[in-house]
Design a protein around this nucleic acid. Structure first.
Lengths: 92, 92
DNA sequence: CTGGATCCGGTGTGATACTG
DNA sequence: CAGTATCACACCGGATCCAG
């Protein structure tokens, strides 16, 4: 019964997890920093989701190392936009 | 932080839950009965998913009452097909 | 500010037993 | 055959504390 999940199925699981959709929607409005995204999801959940969303290339990290402390921005990728577009279709 | 989820978000959650994708893919091959679907997911999980998938009109139940015991078939709806189509796009 | 590590409680999952 | 009920367990999410 246990099967190895395809990349596709893992992506679906990720989208279903808490915070994923909220983060993507927020980034759609424009690039956001960690502290901004915390308004939308919990700290620990945010940490985990950001890591996974980046792994699937739905978001990208932009780090400015020249600043102290470094400034990190999260950006919605094209793939991320596509996914958001799709789910809009199923609104009623 | 806690918000009431939109129908759309609930649908995403459902798709991310265990068994949803497996059931839809299986029904894509043709109508299936409860016992057939058990090959794909656990008994208890199957019960829950079928109920929720039907609630969102991704699948439909067809019952033949004339038979003893009644024969129940599950069918993939148009909406269910659309969803499967989309996720195919994200294959690599 | 941007995380990581940990602990703890709630919830989905799985196995099993039971019913019509 | 097609479910329902129950219970134990694993895992996810939330809160808190720590670090660069």
């Amino acid at each position: 019964m246990e099967r190895t999940k395809s990349k596709n199925e893992e992506l679906i699981n990720l989208l279903g997890m808490k915070g994923s959709y909220e983060i993507l929607k927020e980034l759609e409005k424009g690039n956001k920093r960690f502290k901004d995204l915390k308004k939308v999801v919990t700290h620990s959940t945010l940490t985990k989701r950001l890591f996974e969303l980046e792994k699937f290339n739905l978001i990208a990290r932009k780090v400015d190392e020249s600043r102290r402390p470094p400034v990190v921005e999260y950006i919605l990728t094209e793939k991320g936009k596509e996914i958001l577009e799709f789910f809009r279709k199923f609104r009623e």
